[in-house]
Design a protein around this nucleic acid. Structure first.
Lengths: 160, 160
DNA sequence: CTGCTGTTGCAACTGATTCGCAAATAGATA
DNA sequence: TATCTATTTGCGAATCAGTTGCAACAGCAG
């Protein structure tokens, strides 16, 4: 069973497949790997350009698409809290899932053994070979629950 | 604990909140409720216009947004198999999740008790009050696995 | 160092969704 | 039933994320 790619290996992986290590790809990949949070394409472009000013928007999208298809990164929607853009993280961080607080917009990462079991069960029960699992939870974090007075998280006046 | 809205009750729910039951809303809501599969906004527009020709695209989006915020429908991404559009289903069908075959693009609905347990655990472990859970699995269905000769589902030549 | 081929930049394009505003109308009220 | 008014709608333009065609560029194998 192949291991999940480690910190520095995405570029190695690309090279190993005969793909060219351009300065643009280097900048983009390193930006993703060094990033703390979840990057969207526009942010990734800006950060990558600090390392290599010649990075173009189209190249960012093309590289993200490449890394996605090679399963070196995961694409997240994060419950569309900030519009329809996507977010990305290295696959090495995989295994967890994301909780989005609909009030304060914070993203929390979480994991529990049941998640792994669920994946196994789904595979067993359906016969699917699973490539990607995207689990996203939207709700209200403990802090925001308290602020809103312990009420149901979404009252009419907040919703309408 | 309020029950999950039943077949005919979305319009009642809207009325109960003092929202106006326009012919457009009726057409859109009934279309969603009567639909068999998963509707995207464009398809919903076309189908709703068969019931009420005066339905406009903007109204479809506004109504979907309203129903989403009232938690009467769920929004799905279905792994972006067909572009970036979203799909919708009534919340009464909730509880299951979706498996998308990356080869034949078919969508399979599935459920397993572990899914419910997972939600409960997440809530207990994180203190989140959960409003929406979106679980989507991408992979290859049994039929497509056989067609591709039992190999790993995504070989280089398919990916690059 | 050269050439072949994979990559890139550019700018125009697409497709989904949103917006501002004037006109229409559901539903409460008289 | 006629009237009133806040809500909802249609329209078309705008936005936003992501994509594309093509000529120029640049890894890297030889």
């Amino acid at each position: 069973m192949p291991g999940i790619p480690e910190k520095k290996s995405i570029l190695d992986d690309l090279a190993g497949r005969g793909l060219r290590l351009t300065s643009q790809r280097r900048a983009i990949v390193e930006t993703i790997q060094d990033a703390q949070g979840h990057l969207d394409a526009a942010t990734l472009l800006k950060l990558a350009q600090k390392r290599e000013p010649r990075v173009n928007r189209a190249t960012v999208y093309r590289t993200l698409d490449l890394l996605k298809r090679l399963r070196l990164i995961d694409e997240l929607d994060l419950m569309h809290l900030e519009g329809e853009k996507h977010f990305y993280e290295t696959r090495s961080k995989s295994g967890h899932f994301h909780l989005a607080c609909l009030s304060c917009k914070k993203i929390l990462e979480h994991d529990t053994p049941t998640f792994a079991r669920l994946k196994q069960e789904v595979s067993d029960e359906t016969g699917f070979s699973i490539d990607v699992v995207r689990l996203e939870v939207g709700g209200q974090c403990p802090a925001c629950r308290n602020l809103s007075g312990g009420n149901s998280p979404l009252k009419d006046r907040e919703v309408l």
